[in-house]
Design a protein around this nucleic acid. Structure first.
Lengths: 113, 113
DNA sequence: ATCTATGCATAGACAACCTTGGCATTCGTA
DNA sequence: TACGAATGCCAAGGTTGTCTATGCATAGAT
């Protein structure tokens, strides 16, 4: 992957991004990372060493389920599906992060401070 | 302080918020935390155990300078001032966080995913 | 044959935040 | 005059979450 545009994430937003990415359709891990990178227009990038541990945590929490399958490229893949609990969690996290970003915006605007 | 509305921050944004808060005028630590909480309409809250270590780091980096003084309530306080390097850093951080929030928004919007 | 992309996953390092606790002073109030 | 609440600074330790580095394996292209 040579180099890449470089762009980590804001800690505390990864699981929300994964859940949001799984809203439309189940995806395997590798594809999730690519979607996030592509959908963010290369602004965000998810490292595999962050992605898979996050998926493990979310499996344990019951926010996603997983099953083995085959990718379009004929490779063995683990496909993750958003659960009802995961959808609920997505709502909570979206609200939480939204509040924080709202708060950040208020502190940052020049009229304040 | 009884209870409080509860609301931590998005990790990776604290120093930016402090720098932004010092744009207008020098402030002492305790006042910085209160400003952020008040200016964010109680959406954000800075714990003292996060604030002071952050100020130490920023002193070392040269983004703020500090001197002892007296508060309006006649108390011994350490007053922090934004340096030129700090202003530059504020610009960089603002851009970085802005990009990430932009990226998050793109991933989260229903048309994507 | 070898390289690149695809794909899953773990271990360890590291940064940054929070919790807890400690210390000291001022001011209001009972 | 004693006491609590608010103001103020700071350190130690734990937790969490990310990244880096590494390992393994296979498909497809050159």
């Amino acid at each position: 992957m040579t180099d890449s545009p470089k762009g980590d994430l804001l800690p505390g937003t990864l699981e929300m991004l994964i859940l949001a990415t799984l809203r439309r359709e189940p995806l395997h891990g590798y594809a999730i990372a690519q979607r996030i990178q592509r959908n963010s227009d290369d602004l965000l990038r998810v490292e595999e060493g962050s992605l898979y541990p996050a998926l493990q945590r979310m499996l344990i929490e019951g926010w996603v389920s997983a099953e083995w399958g085959m990718s379009a490229r004929n490779r063995r893949v683990r496909i993750y599906t958003l659960t009802a609990a995961g959808a609920k969690q997505l709502g909570r996290e979206t609200a939480r992060v939204g509040r924080m970003i709202d708060g950040i915006a208020r502190v940052m605007r020049p009229s304040e401070a």
